[in-house]
Design a protein around this nucleic acid. Structure first.
Lengths: 134, 134
DNA sequence: CTCCGTGCAAACGATTTGCACTATG
DNA sequence: CATAGTGCAAATCGTTTGCACGGAG
């Protein structure tokens, strides 16, 4: 099965790349819909799924109900805002973590690992301070 | 709002403790239902939510569609089987990871972090080998 | 002209919620 | 006896799927 480059697919890819953020399917849908009003949410889901299977983009399995997608396929970890659920990149020196060893101890064969830092992003910190003053 | 110790709550807590695994709400429901056939799945969800809010148990936000719950509240990380979605414990020396520093760089205030190793558990490795032989 | 991709609506799985009833403290 | 907790069913949320049609190669 080979991929075809449809307008929808191209647009989804372009908008995901343009936005430096890590978008969820419906956020991306809202963006693309402005240019392509007839596009279906199912199309967005299908494309994100296929493109991440092919390794063109990356599906992030992180905290929160929704999956998010990343145009940057290279190995890197994420920081997650507990308040607004935004996801930013993190550059941890991965050599520090010797997870392989630990996994082998438990009898597992390791395919990968991820580090997820949870915190409150600068924007939400400001909001909190404003609230506190009230 | 104070907590009351109902039969349902006690049972949920006991079964979660008894099982060394990291159960999902519906797995726990199936177990408890054997002793308490009239219990509702909603009750299980509500109790797991409340108990993890109070810090009695811990809600794991990990890979996979379902949330899982852990009787062990202490800081520790998890290894996740990509095939059967089972979750085991992992004992990483947490001092190795200097996530706080990185989070601060991005302007975040850090509340925690987690390391999640993904792999294939011993049982599923065996299953794979059997498949290959066919 | 083939068959991958689309839009739509319906189906789905996990979780949450409104309501009237029950039972703990 | 006040009010936290329950069971049930319906609602919700994110995501997936069946189907007939449309368009890329």
């Amino acid at each position: 099965m080979q991929l075809r480059m449809t307008n929808q697919r191209e647009m989804i890819l372009r908008e995901l790349k343009k936005s430096k953020r890590h978008l969820s399917a419906d956020e991306l849908y809202d963006i693309v819909k402005k240019v392509m009003p007839r596009i279906s949410l199912a199309t967005v889901y299908r494309n994100l799924e296929i493109l991440s299977e092919k390794g063109v983009i990356r599906k992030l399995e992180i905290s929160g109900r929704q999956k998010r997608f990343d145009f940057d396929v290279s190995d890197h970890d994420h920081i997650y805002c507990a308040m607004c659920h935004k996801v930013d990149n993190l550059n941890i020196e991965r050599k520090n973590v010797n997870s392989e060893q630990l996994g082998v101890e438990a009898g597992y064969s390791i395919t990968g690992y991820r580090v997820e830092v949870i915190g409150i992003c600068p924007e939400c910190q400001k909001k909190e301070k404003i609230k506190e003053k009230k």
